[in-house]
Nucleic acid binder design. Structure first.
Lengths: 208, 208, 208, 208
DNA sequence: CATGAATGAGGTTTCATTCAT
DNA sequence: GATGAATGAAACCTCATTCAT
């Protein structure tokens, strides 16, 4: 909706402008990567002047970090709520989580931000630290609990899953990376990946 | 092993020096990423002068591409051979493949190169095209055959796997990325990931 | 004179600055030649920063070409007008042309640019092609007509002149080159050269 | 004979090699200009190693200067002899000189060196000084005497010629420069230029 | 607030020159 | 003597950032 190539008309309100810059940044960072993105391109894409970017973000790195934050924070709230639900079956919970991820990340412009996190975060150790502490490790804790609950109910197919809860994210990561590198040549069936994972993680309580 | 009659005119220590530059390049590219790696740093790391790098590689991009090639090409030969074996059970074959990957990539310095491929390749579309054609799509073909054979033998656990053979690489990709971003904070149990995958893909022929 | 509505978006002092850069470029290119002139020297000479040069000219070569164009284009307009005059005697016309060249080129800073054209143009084949097509061959055509008209009026001294109209430029070229190489040691009497040429080309109609 | 593009077989004798380097230098300097000629190209063209050039010439500049010297010195000897002849008519003498120049310079590879002198000498003030003192001013003296002698015999057409003896070289300079810049597009009739000059300088003693 | 002209640090690449073999 | 691998100074050009308007 807002990531055409055309230069949009000047946004007015201050918060709107901040958000226009972030939108433009996703586009440009996605296309070029952090190092090759020019602030001037982001400004033009946002329909504002180059100097204006610096009224909203102190420097290029902060802009990138804000971008990541703007994408990740809303996700966390949802996740928190759903993963803690204990009155639904683990498979149902996980199905819901995957649906949410599919809808709110993979199908939205946010998938670009997730890709940028994956490809650029190793060069921003402080971002990595921040998100590990605040998001990843908390997410893994919730997942571990979910898997343990599934195991207790006899629904966990492989004990190995308990040792690598990170793999639950594999369909997301693989989908994002595959599309970044090879979408031009060959698509990846993300839904099948989710289904495959649900089948891999869970079985009905009778072991079938 | 790499001491054949050299292709070009460079004398004696030449191939060793080329190697030294590539080794230095892994280190520096890994630490800084392609864009932030300075040729001068690579040269210093290799213990040579800045200009010397250009005697072996025409420019920074070629150096990077050669680096990727040097890591990937040997892998392909092995993979080809093993995946085509038809007289072993699919699970055994896959186990061997995972072992090979673990030994030759994840446990070696090559894991850094694989990470660089994943994180930088989207900015080198021609590398992506080359490796998709020559490696990835061929690998997927072999995997598809393997999975179909497993299915024919009643050993494939989920039909969904057939639609996303890419997911077979998930343990490798996840391991590499996790370690790049979060190894400092929390390890990932790569072996458990492989086991989980084998359990997910295959069941004994009687469905157990 | 150069204060029309400017083509691009550069505001107020912009055309002045472009001019200042071109002026500085004449000085530095003249002193050092194209290859040995450093952009930084030109910038310093113009009283601006190195990067500023690149706001006005995309690269060093373009700067050089613009420099040549800025000197040559105004000349052409004049020349066109005068050489086509058919109601004055050829000798008078040629006298006027030589006067114009003397005033507007040899006595002005433009003589440096003409020298640069002569000394550097062989390394810019596209400049040579452009100026041959647009200036030199057109100038020669006009000169040929002039000489033929003189011949028809019985005023051409030597038929050989018709075969090498290029020699009409000899006083200019010789003067520019002599001064570039030997002005320090010995002057060249440019006016005598022009007079010699007029005497060589033309005689009164009665053959005297 | 010796300016093909192919890499010749190794010359052996020391003087031969010096001369091979000079031959190669003409070719390469002509094609690229002083600044853009690479020592390595000259060496390859001469069929020797890069370092070998430095056994014969201390640096690039010296090589260039030696090149010019090798072309100019032999010319001087001839010129001296002919111009001083007083028992032939000035026009005959000048005709001979022009013939010599045509044969030994314009028709030979030396024309490239003359061009290089013209185009590069302004950036080598010491070369200019040397040749002005030793060649140009001496040549002009001889020419002045010749013209005065012609005048005394009533054979000088225009008194202006006495004031700009430099113009006697105009056909040479114009021919060399024209060919350097525009030979691809349009030729210059050098012989007509010489004839035009002889007609311009001299008349028969009776004024015809 | 907004702008974009101006700046100069920084990185890539070239190539004259050296020197160990 | 001859070589060419190695070097690093030097120059082009880019772009994040500043600041006068």
């Amino acid at each position: 909706m807002s990531n055409e190539i055309s230069h949009r008309k000047r946004p007015k309100g201050s918060e709107e402008k901040r958000s226009a810059i972030l939108d433009a940044a996703v586009t440009v960072f996605s296309r070029k990567g952090f190092a090759n993105a020019r602030i001037e391109d982001i400004a033009r894409q946002a329909g504002i002047g180059k100097g204006t970017v610096y009224l909203y973000f102190p420097d290029k790195e902060s802009l990138f970090k804000s971008l990541v934050a703007s994408a990740v924070e809303p996700i966390l709230e949802h996740a928190d709520r759903f993963l803690s639900e204990e009155d639904t079956s683990p498979r149902e919970t996980m199905t819901t989580v995957y649906d949410m991820i599919d809808t709110h990340i993979l199908q939205s412009e946010k998938r670009h931000i997730i890709r940028l996190m994956i490809t650029e975060m190793s060069y921003f150790p402080d971002i990595a630290a921040y998100y590990h502490t605040n998001i990843v490790s908390r997410g893994l804790d919730l997942l571990r609990k979910l898997l343990i609950r599934a195991d207790a109910r006899g629904e966990l197919r492989s004990q190995h899953a308990l040792k690598v809860p990170q793999m639950v994210f594999a369909p997301v990561v693989m989908s994002v990376i595959w599309n970044a590198l090879f979408a031009r040549f060959e698509s990846i069936d993300t839904h099948a990946a989710f289904q495959f994972y649900l089948d891999s993680l869970f079985q009905s309580a009778d072991g079938a």
